[in-house]
């Protein structure tokens, strides 16, 4: 196709959209009504704070005294060579692993020790490095599982088909179709997710995560295995998500992709934070260059 030509208008679109959105109180647009906004909502507010987190697996120190914080409304990059601890960091933030020491605060509240589903309902959603959809469910049902997270009725409502339950089901279905359209796979809504193409599955994972109404969306290498054209489309999608008011945390190997889309970046190597700053700052950091261009043991 004609990717190089496509890129420019897309960049322009996104650039145009940004100032408009920035004028709005960030971090609130993507949330449904009734979600408590803990801090005041000033722009540049800290959304997530990783505070001296250390995480050990037996002898392996996957995270070593890592600290950084995300601001509302930004696209934040988390990069580093293989085994640097990026996924582990996501796992600590979503309650899969408990930090050996240190704290993680989300909207001013500690989330260490909270249950995974509580953290999700609190506003952190994620995708997985290796796609983890529910393979036998249709694409639509996959997204509806995410939408169910905020629904109130359950077994009794479903058993007796109470009106409120029925309304929630209907609203969940509408919203899920809307999200499938948003990520561009609405035509596959009725297809069992196992049968979707790899790229569609990755998009479906994003839709499912968005269905939980996140304040913070964590994407673990969403572009892995993508062609350059697909990567461009994904970039566009990530910007679109941010423009709805969702803060995005992005793990990515492709340096060009990260540099093009993120506002700020943290670089991990062997579990340690070695750099933090804007893409331009990080790109010129000698430590980062060494980490990427040096001869790490896992390069083979």
């Amino acid at each position: 196709m004609s990717e190089p030509h496509m890129e420019t208008p897309q960049e322009l679109d996104a650039a145009n959209a940004r100032p408009v959105d920035r004028a709005m109180p960030t971090g609130t647009v993507g949330r449904s009504v009734g979600e408590p906004e803990l801090s005041g909502g000033r722009s540049g507010d800290v959304l997530l704070e990783v505070d001296h987190v250390t995480l050990r697996f037996g002898g392996v120190v996957a995270l070593n005294d890592v600290s950084f914080s995300l601001r509302k409304g930004e696209i934040f990059g988390l990069i580093g060579p293989n085994g640097a601890g990026k996924t582990t960091c996501f796992n600590a933030m979503t309650g899969v692993y408990r930090p050996t020491s240190g704290g993680i605060r989300f909207q001013g509240e500690s989330i260490v020790g909270k249950k995974k589903h509580e953290i999700t309902r609190g506003g952190i959603a994620r995708t997985f490095q290796n796609v983890r959809l529910f393979p036998e469910m249709t694409a639509l049902e996959n997204v509806m599982v995410g939408a169910d997270a905020h629904h109130k009725t359950s077994v009794v409502g479903a058993l007796f088909r109470l009106p409120r339950h029925w309304q929630e089901e209907k609203a969940g279905r509408e919203k899920s179709l809307e999200l499938l359209r948003f990520v561009g796979i609405e035509r596959r809504a009725g297809e069992v997710s196992r049968n979707l193409s790899y790229g569609e599955q990755r998009r479906l994972e994003i839709a499912r995560a968005l269905a939980t109404n996140p304040t913070l969306l964590c994407l673990d290498e969403p572009a892995a295995g993508f062609t350059p054209a697909e990567k461009v489309e994904l970039l566009e999608l990530i910007r679109k998500i941010r423009d709805t008011g969702v803060t995005v945390l992005l793990i990515e190997h492709d340096m060009r992709l990260v540099m093009g889309v993120t506002d700020r970046i943290v670089v991990l190597e062997f579990g340690k934070k070695i750099a933090e700053g804007t893409p331009a700052e990080v790109r010129d950091d000698p430590k980062v260059i060494a980490a990427y261009l040096g001869v790490p043991t896992d390069a083979a």
Binding site: K115, R126, F128, F134, V145
Partner: peptide
């Protein structure tokens, strides 16, 4: 069904 297919992913999805 979500629990049957991937219990951890299900919990992470709320």
């Amino acid at each position: 069904l979500a629990i049957r297919e991937d219990e951890e992913a299900a919990e992470i999805m709320g």
